[in-house]
Every structure is written in C-alpha cells, then in structure tokens.
Amino acid sequence: MLALPGEDGAIIAGGQSLLPLLNFRLAAPSCLIDIGRLDELRRIVEGDGYIEIGGLVRHCELAASAVIGEAFPLLHQAIGHIAHPGVRHRGTLGGSLAMADPAGELGACCLALEGRMSLQSVRGQRWVGAEDFFTGIYETALAGDEILTAVRLPRRGPGGIQIFKEVARRRGDFALAGLALVAGANLSNPRLALLGVADRPVLAARTMALLREDGSAMGSAVDRAVAQIGKEVDPAQDPAYPPAYRRHLVQVLLRRTLAELSP
C-alpha cells in the first residue's frame, strides 16, 4: 500500500509514538497501515555471529528475553528507562527506531552495538548500518515505501563492556542526555553512542578515538575523554535545558561510566 501513488500513508506498529501525534492532530495521514499482525517480524532469531530482532518485538519482550539479556545487557539496561509498563507492552523496536526521537534509548544502543537495519519494500530488501540509518531529527533512511523489518546485532566477544546511562527528570521520561558504551575487555575498541544531545543518536567518534589511543579508563585519560566529549557534542537550543547543560551532563555521565570501569 505504501507503494501506491497518491496515498499519504503512515505505518503503525505498536502506535506508542504515532498515537500521540494523531491525538494531538500533529499528523493526519490519509491512511494507516497496521503491520502489527505480521508475526514473522516479532521474533528474536539467533544467527551465526549475530542476533536478529524483528521490528515488531516489543520492549517488554526484549526485556524478558534471556537471549538478549545475555548477549546485549545494554538493551536490558536501556529498556528500564523507557516510559512505563503500559507503554513497554505495546512499543516496538522497529517503531521506536523508525520514529527516530533524538532522545530515544534504543537508537543509541543500536548505534553502539553496530546494528544494521533491514529495510524492506516491494522493491526488495536492503541493509543500512545504524550510523547511516538516522539522518536527522525524526528522520531516517527509510524510503516512503519501506518498513523496518529487523535489526541485526553482531554478537560480542566474551568479557566485554556494555553500559547504558542517562539522566531524566523523572522515571520513564525522555533522557536529557544519555550514553551507551560498548567495548571489549579493558575498553578495547570502544563505541560510545549518545542520545539527547544532537538531532539524532550520534557516535562520539573523536572521544572513541581518544579512548582507543589511551586504552585506559583511568586518571588523566578520563579527564581527556571528558574534555573531548564536551567539545564534541553540540546540543540544540532549548530554553528549558540549554546546550551547556546537556553538554555538561554528557561529561558527567562519561566520567561516571569510566569510573565504574576503573579497577
């Protein structure tokens, strides 16, 4: 249906992001395409070297999955910050990623975990890395006729690091700032994704490079990384939470994260 000309359609999965827009009349699509019953998109599949999570897997199902908990504790940490039980029962991974809220937890997690998104349309399927998937505020690489069917996350080696942290005003609120750090043992090959500080989830590439160089989470390396991340992020203007505040928060979160890693 999405491929039909002249239809201003919107896809609805769990509806937890779309319904407020409809209720507030901020979106008024001419037709809604409910993909909620495509059960084949609601599976967690263990592949060779990866785990594939269907786009319709709900937050509560991710949280209940032992497979996910073992392979990607980052996701379990993050889901605890997403809204409240009633929302987690309906909200889906694919819906959350496709909405691309800059403060969304799961986008940053997928970015840190080197996720790849499967985008499908009548024209076929393609894979897009998380770094290329998020293109702007509420903007993604999804074409008008595509849906996000799955996310494939590569398995990590043993002894690795996965830490998610955020600051929100109240339990379940969107983060004012947050980070997802994924690395091998001893902070090798760190991937540091941030949420709430840009128009999309972003990797702190230069801070990652610095951490890789220093190869340590101690002493002056911490100070350098914290200083670097402060230079690296450029949060948007917001009268309630000015850029300086969000930048400061990311620095605080990084320092706290690295402190946890110091022996």
Partner: peptide, 13 residues
C-alpha cells in the same frame, strides 16, 4: 491480559 494505554491504541488495532 497486559496493561496498555487506551489512548495509545486504536480501536481497530
């Protein structure tokens, strides 16, 4: 059987 927000689900769903 699960709690949901009645305002965030369409009746058709």
């Amino acid at each position: 059987g699960q709690t949901v927000r009645g305002c965030l689900v369409l009746a058709v769903q």
